[in-house]
Design a binder for these strands. Structure first.
Length: 645
RNA sequence: GCUGAUGUAGCUCAGAUGGUAGAGCACUUCCUUGGUAAGGAAGAGGUCACCGGUUCAAUCCCGGUCAUCAGCUCCA
C-alpha cells in the first residue's frame, strides 16, 4: 500500500503495518518522540495497523495536536494515580486543555482534596509513568460498556454513555485504570516525564449549577524538565504583571470592604491614566460625529421593565430603591436613558444617524464568587454610545464602530480575538424579538465582518437578549479571557420604546440602534492595559511622566525651576529633593516605573543640560532642555512612543 | 451563588500544642551632601478580618459573617 507523508513523499509499506513501525522506519529518534498519528486527517493510536493507502502525519510534543494527545494521556495517568490513592473514586470528564489538562473526580465519602494533597498524587503519577504502562484500546459494544460501568457503579460514566448510544464505544486501559475514551493516546506512560498539579477547585457536573459539585484537579506535564521549568517561570512572571498587584504597588486603585466588594476606588494616579484614556477616546468620538451626553446613575424602574432588562436580569441587579410611590433602579446599563434623549424631540431622517455617547457608570449585582480585581466588578463605567440610524445606514455605522474599536486595540498594541455572538436558536426563552429579525441582524453583522476582512469565530448562544454582537476578547496575564469592546445590533429596543423618525415620505419609521463600547468597561480595560504594559505605561498615559532628581541640595533651586517649566507645558512631573543618595532616588523612580528620570548635578547646572534616564533602559545621556522638551512633546501624543526617537 | 483555600503592622511575610506577637521594606527623628537601582542609627506602629461559643485564659479550638484567591456557574 502507498503511504503519503506531509511533505508529499509517497512510500510503499506492507498492508497492516502500524503507525509506530512506519515511524521507526523513518528514524529512531522520531519513534521515541512520536505521540500520535493522523491517518487521512483522523487522530489514531500509533499502535493501530493501517490497512489501506493513506496519507499520514506523525505528531510530537512540538505540535499542538501532539500536546493535546500528551495531556489527554496525562489526565488518564492522573486518574490512575487518584484511583490508586483513593479507591472507589468516580470519574467525570478529563480532557486536555490549552495548557495542560484536568480531571473531574468524585472521591467516596464526600472527601474534598486540597492543594496539600496534590504532591502525593504527583508522586504516584511519576511512579506509574516510570513503570512505562501501555495505553491499550479496546472497542466494545454499548451493552458491554454500560455493564462495565454499572458494575463499577460510576453514575457519571453511565450518564456519559447514555449520550453515546448508537456510537462506537472504546475503552482505554493503562495499568489498572480503565476509562471510557475515544482516544487517541501516547504509546505508553513513560513519555510523561515531568508533572505539576497546579490547582484544585470545584466544578459542577456537566457545567450545570443545579447538579453535583465535583472536584477538578488541574495539572500540566512535559516530556522535558526545561519545558516544565520554563512554564513555571512563565507563570511566576505572569503573576508579577497581575493588575491587582500592580494596582497596589503603583497606587492606581484600591478595593476595600469598607466601601464594598467589587466597587473599585480610583486613586489619583489611576485616575490620571483613566482620564487620559477617556480624552483619547473623546477626541476620536468628536472626529466621528458623536455627541456627548450625561445621564443620572438611577432611573425609574419602569424604564427597565419597558426595556426588558429588569425581568431578564432581576437576579443580578441591586434591589430597587423605593421613594414615595415610585421605585428606582441603580442603572445597570445606559441604553434606556439614551433612548429618552432620542425621544426628547421629533427626529427627521435628515438628523440621522444620531450618535449619543456617555462615559456612563452602571451597577450590577454580580455574584460574589465572580468578583475579581477590576475585571469583574459591581460598579463600572462603560464608554457607551448608542447610534440611532436608518436601516440603509446600518452597515456604514457598524463599520465605523468596529473601526473605532480596532483603532483602540492597535493604539495599545493589544492582541484581540473577534467573536460574532449569535443567539442559540434552541433557547427561545432567552431572546426577545422575532426570528426573522434575528436572522436579518445576524446576517448583517456577518456581512460587515466579512466585508471588513475580520478573522472571527462564531459564538452560538453568546448574543445579548435583544440582538447579536461583534465582541472583542483579550486574555489577561494569567490567560483568562475577557470581553472588552462590543458592537451590537438592536431592532428590539426601538420597538419597545416606540422610537421613530419621520422619513422623506413624511411617514413615521423605526430607527435601528447600534450599541457599542470600544473599551467596554473602563475598569476592565484598565485591568488588561496594566497587565499588557506590566505597569510600564507609555509616556502619554503614565501617571507620573518625569521625575526630577537633584543629586545634592545645591541643585534644588535649579530643579524646582525645571519642574515649573515642565509643569507649564502640561507634563506630569515630580521632584525628589529628599536628603537621599542619588542611587536611592533612581531606584525608587524605577520601581514606580516613571518613564524618565531627570538627573541634575553640578555638571548639568554648569552646562545647562539635563541627564536623562529612561525607565528600563538606564542612562541615555545629556540633553539640552529644548531637545528633551521636544522629545517629551512627541511622546505625549497617543501612540507617540511608536515613532522612532 | 457553589467547591476548596486564605485573612497577623501601610506593604511583603514569619510565628506559638491555647498563656494578648516578630522581621524586612515603608513611616518619624538624627547623622550622612552623595553621580545613574536602595548609606547608617534610633523611634513609633497590632482589638492577630469581624461576631458569637468552648475555656481560668482564644490571634490559635468550634460556629457564623465579611473579604480575598483558584475554579465552576452567570455576565445586558
Amino acid at each position: 500500500m502507498k503511504i503519503t507523508f506531509p511533505n508529499g513523499d509517497v512510500r510503499e509499506f506492507p498492508n497492516g503495518i502500524t503507525g509506530m513501525e512506519i515511524t521507526k522506519s523513518i528514524s529512531e529518534r522520531l519513534a521515541k518522540e512520536a505521540l500520535g498519528i493522523f491517518v487521512n486527517g483522523e487522530k489514531k493510536d500509533l499502535s493501530l495497523p493501517i490497512q489501506d493507502d493513506a496519507s499520514i502525519e506523525i505528531v510530537t510534543f512540538d505540535d499542538t495536536r501532539g500536546k493535546e494527545i500528551f495531556w489527554h494521556s496525562s489526565a488518564h495517568l492522573m486518574a490512575e494515580a487518584v484511583q490508586s490513592i483513593y479507591p472507589g473514586t468516580k470519574f467525570g470528564v478529563g480532557p486536555a486543555i490549552e495548557n495542560g489538562f484536568y480531571y473531574d473526580i468524585d472521591i467516596p465519602g464526600g472527601k474534598k482534596l486540597s492543594i496539600d494533597d496534590l504532591p502525593q498524587i504527583e508522586k504516584k503519577m511519576m511512579e506509574l509513568a516510570n513503570a512505562s504502562l501501555e495505553y491499550h484500546r479496546t472497542d466494545v459494544t454499548w451493552d458491554e460498556a454500560i455493564e462495565h460501568w454499572k458494575k463499577i457503579g460510576d453514575e457519571y460514566k453511565i450518564e456519559l454513555l447514555e449520550g453515546l448510544k448508537g456510537q462506537e464505544i472504546s475503552f482505554y486501559q493503562q495499568g489498572n485504570f480503565i476509562d471510557l475514551c475515544r482516544g487517541s493516546h501516547v504509546p505508553n506512560t513513560s513519555h510523561i516525564k515531568f508533572v505539576k498539579l497546579l490547582s484544585v477547585a470545584g466544578a459542577y457536573w456537566r457545567g450545570d449549577s443545579t447538579r453535583s459539585m465535583m472536584t477538578r484537579i488541574y495539572g500540566i506535564t512535559f516530556p522535558k524538565k526545561k519545558m516544565l521549568d520554563d512554564y513555571l517561570t512563565m507563570l511566576e512572571e505572569a503573576k508579577k504583571r497581575d493588575h491587582r498587584k500592580l494596582g497596589k504597588e503603583l497606587e492606581l486603585f484600591m478595593i476595600t470592604p469598607a466601601i464594598g466588594g467589587g466597587l473599585p476606588v480610583w486613586l489619583p494616579k489611576g485616575t490620571t491614566v483613566r482620564r487620559k484614556l477617556e480624552s483619547f477616546l473623546r477626541d476620536e468620538l468628536i472626529k466621528r460625529g458623536y455627541v456627548e451626553v450625561i445621564t443620572p446613575h438611577i432611573g425609574n424602574l419602569n424604564l427597565y421593565k419597558t426595556s426588558g432588562h429588569y425581568p431578564y436580569y432581576a437576579e443580578s441587579q441591586f434591589a430597587p430603591i423605593k421613594v414615595d410611590d415610585e421605585e428606582y433602579l441603580l442603572k445597570p446599563m445606559n441604553c434606556p436613558h439614551h433612548h429618552q434623549i432620542y425621544s426628547f424631540k421629533p427626529r427627521s431622517y435628515r438628523d440621522l444617524p444620531v450618535r449619543l455617547a456617555e462615559f456612563g457608570t452602571v451597577y450590577r449585582y454580580e455574584q460574589s464568587g465572580e468578583l475579581s480585581g477590576l475585571s469583574r466588578v459591581r460598579g463600572f463605567t462603560q464608554d457607551d454610545a448608542h447610534i440611532y440610524c436608518m436601516h440603509e445606514q446600518l452597515k456604514d455605522e457598524l463599520i465605523n464602530a468596529v473601526d473605532l474599536t480596532q483603532l483602540v486595540f492597535t493604539t495599545f498594541g493589544m492582541e484581540v480575538t473577534t467573536r460574532l455572538s449569535f443567539r442559540d436558536k434552541t433557547n427561545t426563552e432567552k431572546y426577545a424579538g422575532d426570528s426573522d429579525t434575528w436572522d436579518k441582524a445576524e446576517k448583517e453583522i456577518k456581512e460587515v465582518a466579512d466585508q471588513m476582512g475580520l478573522k472571527y469565530e462564531i459564538g452560538i448562544g453568546e448574543a445579548s437578549f435583544y440582538g447579536p454582537k461583534i465582541d472583542f476578547i483579550v486574555k489577561d496575564a494569567i490567560g483568562r479571557k475577557w470581553q472588552l469592546g462590543t458592537v451590537q445590533v438592536d431592532y428590539v429596543m426601538p420597538e419597545r420604546f416606540g422610537l421613530e423618525y419621520t422619513g422623506a415620505d413624511n411617514q413615521p419609521h423605526r430607527p435601528v440602534i447600534i450599541h457599542r463600547a470600544p473599551f467596554g468597561s473602563m475598569e476592565r480595560f484598565l485591568s488588561i492595559l496594566i497587565e499588557h504594559f506590566a505597569g510600564n505605561f507609555p509616556f502619554w498615559l503614565a501617571p507620573v511622566q518625569l521625575n526630577i532628581l537633584p543629586i545634592g541640595g545645591n541643585q534644588n533651586e535649579f530643579a524646582y525651576n525645571l519642574k515649573k517649566s515642565f509643569d507649564d507645558l502640561g507634563f506630569r512631573t515630580e521632584i525628589d529633593v529628599r536628603n537621599e543618595k542619588i542611587n536611592r532616588k533612581i531606584a525608587e523612580s524605577e520601581t514606580q516605573k516613571v518613564p524618565y528620570a531627570i538627573i541634575i548635578g553640578q555638571k548639568e547646572m554648569d552646562e545647562n543640560l539635563i541627564s536623562l534616564r529612561e525607565h528600563g533602559k538606564g542612562n541615555i545621556g545629556n540633553f539640552s532642555i529644548d531637545d528633551a522638551t521636544a522629545l517629551f512633546l512627541k511622546l505625549n501624543q497617543p501612540g507617540g512612543e511608536k515613532e522612532n526617537i
